Computed example of a mutant assay.
Amino acid sequence: MENQEHFKFSNGVIVYPLVFVMLIWLVFWFEIRFRFDFTNFGVYPMRLNGLKGVVFSPFIHSSIQHLYHNTIPLFVLSASLFYFYRSIAWKVLLYGILLSGLLTWLIGRPAYHIGASGLIYVLVSFLFFKGILAKHYRLIALSLLVVFLYGSMVWYVLPIKEGMSWEGHLSGLVVGLFFALIYRNNIPKPVKYKWEEPDYDEESDEFLKHFDENGNFIESTNLESDGSEEQPKTINYIFKENKD
């Protein structure tokens, strides 16, 4: 059973996604500036040397358009992950990269699969299904927002566009659903307060004797004496609505 979470903003909600996005832009700049091509560091299915792409492929992009289209959803979705699920955010990110890359390696076509879109599909799938399973109003609202912003992405898990790694998208979708199921008990819950009834009876003589006929509080100092030393003065602060 995971520890109970509560929604709370922290610097990591912005800093971690921003650093990740800046890193993939830095890799792309390095390729352009020094005329490198890191495509062969992508996932190449069913080849042992293609396994290195399981780790490196999310940081490699084929063009500025490819990188730009991945940047905004990657930042928004990872920031949402760190805000709503900070205790498991790193697990979802790191294992999401590894598992989606490994699944792509198993089912992909014989070509290099690169880009962060596989991880984006992990995040979309996890945030959507986790919110539905949680049955928490904020998380359901997040699920609906994800559908509104990125719902059309579901079509790209099918081979409808040439040159696009639909296998990577499908792998990310499956891995995100898998995480939503295994972490289904990790649900943020609101703080609950228990209200207890007072231990006195408002109609009893013991209660009413502290007020005059107009409902005003009377400071009572008439204490019964048992012949022992003088008892200390006691004031009981009890409040009652004035009905006049």
Score class of each variant (00 low, 15 high):
residue 64 I to E: 02
residue 64 I to V: 07
residue 66 H to W: 00
residue 69 H to G: 12
residue 71 T to Q: 03
residue 73 P to T: 12
residue 73 P to I: 10
residue 77 L to A: 06
residue 78 S to K: 05
residue 78 S to L: 13
residue 79 A to K: 06
residue 80 S to Q: 04
residue 80 S to D: 01
residue 84 F to W: 06
residue 84 F to N: 11
residue 84 F to M: 13
residue 85 Y to G: 07
residue 85 Y to S: 07
residue 86 R to I: 05
residue 86 R to C: 01
residue 86 R to Q: 11
residue 86 R to S: 14
residue 87 S to N: 14
residue 88 I to R: 10
residue 88 I to M: 07
residue 89 A to E: 04
residue 89 A to Y: 01
residue 89 A to M: 05
residue 94 L to N: 06
residue 95 Y to A: 12
residue 96 G to I: 05
residue 97 I to N: 06
residue 98 L to W: 01
residue 98 L to E: 02
residue 100 S to A: 14
residue 100 S to P: 04
residue 101 G to V: 04
residue 103 L to V: 14
residue 104 T to N: 09
residue 105 W to Q: 09
residue 105 W to F: 07
residue 106 L to A: 14
residue 108 G to T: 11
residue 108 G to Q: 09
residue 108 G to V: 10
residue 109 R to M: 11
residue 109 R to T: 14
residue 111 A to Q: 13
residue 111 A to R: 13
residue 112 Y to L: 12
residue 114 I to C: 02
residue 114 I to D: 02
residue 116 A to L: 07
residue 116 A to V: 08
residue 118 G to S: 15
residue 118 G to V: 06
residue 119 L to E: 03
residue 121 Y to I: 07
residue 122 V to P: 03
residue 124 V to Q: 03
residue 124 V to F: 00
residue 126 F to W: 04
residue 126 F to Q: 11
residue 127 L to Y: 00
residue 127 L to R: 07
residue 129 F to Q: 12
residue 130 K to N: 04
residue 132 I to A: 07
residue 133 L to V: 08
residue 136 H to I: 12
residue 137 Y to G: 09
residue 137 Y to P: 14
residue 138 R to T: 08
residue 139 L to K: 03
residue 142 L to P: 01
residue 146 V to D: 00
residue 148 F to R: 13
residue 148 F to M: 15
residue 148 F to S: 15
residue 150 Y to W: 10
residue 152 S to W: 03
residue 152 S to H: 09
residue 153 M to I: 02
residue 155 W to G: 10
residue 155 W to I: 15
residue 157 V to P: 00
residue 158 L to S: 12
residue 159 P to A: 09
residue 159 P to H: 10
residue 160 I to M: 07
residue 160 I to G: 09
residue 163 G to V: 12
residue 164 M to H: 11
residue 165 S to T: 12
residue 166 W to E: 13
residue 167 E to Y: 02
residue 167 E to I: 11
residue 170 L to P: 05
residue 171 S to E: 04
residue 172 G to W: 00
residue 173 L to Q: 04
residue 174 V to H: 01
residue 174 V to L: 15
residue 175 V to S: 09
residue 176 G to E: 08
residue 176 G to K: 05
residue 178 F to Y: 14
residue 180 A to S: 15
residue 181 L to M: 09
residue 182 I to S: 01
residue 182 I to L: 08
residue 183 Y to L: 14
residue 183 Y to S: 10
residue 185 N to G: 04
residue 188 P to D: 06
residue 188 P to F: 03
residue 190 P to S: 09
residue 191 V to C: 03
residue 191 V to E: 07
residue 192 K to T: 14
